[in-house]
Design a protein around this nucleic acid. Structure first.
Lengths: 129, 129
DNA sequence: CCGGATCCTAAGGGATACTG
DNA sequence: CAGTATCCCTTAGGATCCGG
């Protein structure tokens, strides 16, 4: 639905925010990251993904794979054998994306404690209503 | 719903993915980034945000502000005047987060073209069904 | 000016059963 | 093995109106 270049005609720092969302939209789903991580270390088969990405349903696995493939983040290779064999591989673009997420990982680890404290404090504060 | 430390008991590289989602969950909403960007440059009032963050509804502005405040990313200061004046400011933690997103912004800009080409190619390929 | 309360729609996502 | 197809529920989010 949201195209890539809807970041024009804003004119402010909000254009920056829009560019960020551009990236987040491709990785924002519940399962995208888990799949990308699993596919980053080489070709992975459908069933392998189903096991490695804990809790994912067959349906969501298929859907997320299709989206990632469509965005050029995964490459899908079908081996015309019986039984069928399909391998998914992260593209260079996807690997770059994953490395860009390292900064985010660091941030999350550094502030994990502060965040839950902030939440606890907020909830305490707003307990009586 | 999702607590902060649900990343244990996985044991694989998937724990990494889980940490990434930890960060994304706090910024994954449709409006969070836009609000943070606007609040990054100093105190902003409610109505200012309503104008700067284009397209946001009153309801979502309030909700997102509350969530960001609860996570310790925004500070809310109420001036007991008439009419009321409320200022929102990004906390240092939020500023760090924003800087961590720069890598993501760069990625989005670098691959913007490649992504839309990949989409076009995929859609062309899968046109006949 | 800064919201809260209510109602409603749409999108995300889970469970399950079926198929080439 | 690698998916489709269906059904259903839950959540995000928009529209609108009311209140301190």
């Amino acid at each position: 639905m949201s195209q890539g270049n809807s970041c024009v005609s804003i004119g402010r720092a909000q254009a920056r925010a829009c560019t960020v969302r551009e990236a987040l939209d491709r990785v924002g789903g519940k399962w995208s990251i888990g799949i990308l991580v699993a596919a980053a270390k080489g070709p992975v088969r459908f069933t392998e993904l189903e096991r490695q990405v804990e809790g994912i349903s067959r349906r969501m696995l298929t859907l997320t794979l299709r989206n990632l493939e469509r965005d050029g983040l995964l490459h899908r290779r079908v081996h015309p054998t019986v039984p069928p064999k399909v391998e998914y591989t992260a593209t260079p673009m996807a690997l770059e994306l994953y490395e860009s997420l390292v900064a985010l990982t660091d941030w999350a680890e550094r502030h994990r404690g502060a965040i839950s404290e902030a939440r606890a404090a907020y909830d305490r504060e707003h307990a009586g209503q």
